[in-house]
Simulated assay, not measured.
Amino acid sequence: MAVAVHYSGNLQRAQETVDTIVAAGGRAIAVHADVADEGEVAALFDTVEEEFGGIDVVVHAAGIMILSTVAELNFDDFDRMHRTNVRGTFVVDQQAARCVRRGGAIINFSTSVKKLAFPTYAAYAATKGAVDAITLVLAKELRGRDITVNAVAPGPTATDLFLDGKDEATVENLSKLAPLERLGTPVDIAEAVAFLAGPARWVNGQVIYVNGGVI
Rank of each mutant, 00 (worst) to 15 (best):
R80V: 07
M81Y: 03
H82T: 15
H82I: 08
R83W: 02
R83I: 10
R83N: 06
N85V: 14
N85F: 12
V86G: 02
V86T: 14
R87E: 11
G88E: 02
F90T: 09
F90K: 10
V91P: 05
V91I: 12
V91G: 01
Q94G: 12
Q94W: 11
Q95T: 09
A96R: 05
C99K: 13
V100N: 11
R101N: 04
G103I: 04
G103Q: 06
G104M: 02
A105M: 08
A105S: 15
I106A: 04
I106P: 06
I106Y: 04
I107Y: 09
I107D: 07
N108Q: 14
F109E: 01
S110A: 14
T111E: 05
S112N: 11
F118K: 12
F118D: 07
F118T: 08
Y121E: 14
A122N: 11
A125F: 05
A125Q: 06
A126M: 13
T127A: 11
K128W: 07
G129N: 09
A130F: 11
V131E: 08
V131R: 03
A133K: 09
L136N: 02
V137N: 13
V137M: 08
A139L: 07
K140G: 13
E141R: 07
E141M: 08
E141F: 10
L142I: 01
L142A: 02
R143N: 13
R143I: 07
G144F: 04
G144V: 00
I147L: 05
T148L: 09
T148C: 06
A151Q: 03
A151K: 02
V152P: 01
A153T: 03
G155L: 00
T157W: 00
T159P: 09
T159S: 13
T159W: 06
T159D: 03
D160Q: 14
G165S: 11
G165I: 10
D167K: 10
E168G: 05
A169Q: 15
T170H: 08
V171D: 05
E172T: 15
E172D: 14
N173T: 12
L174Q: 12
K176A: 12
L177S: 10
A178H: 04
A178L: 04
P179T: 03
P179L: 02
P179A: 02
L180N: 10
E181G: 10
T185W: 08
T185C: 06
P186T: 05
V187M: 08
V187S: 12
V187T: 10
D188W: 12
D188Y: 11
I189E: 06
I189K: 05
A190C: 03
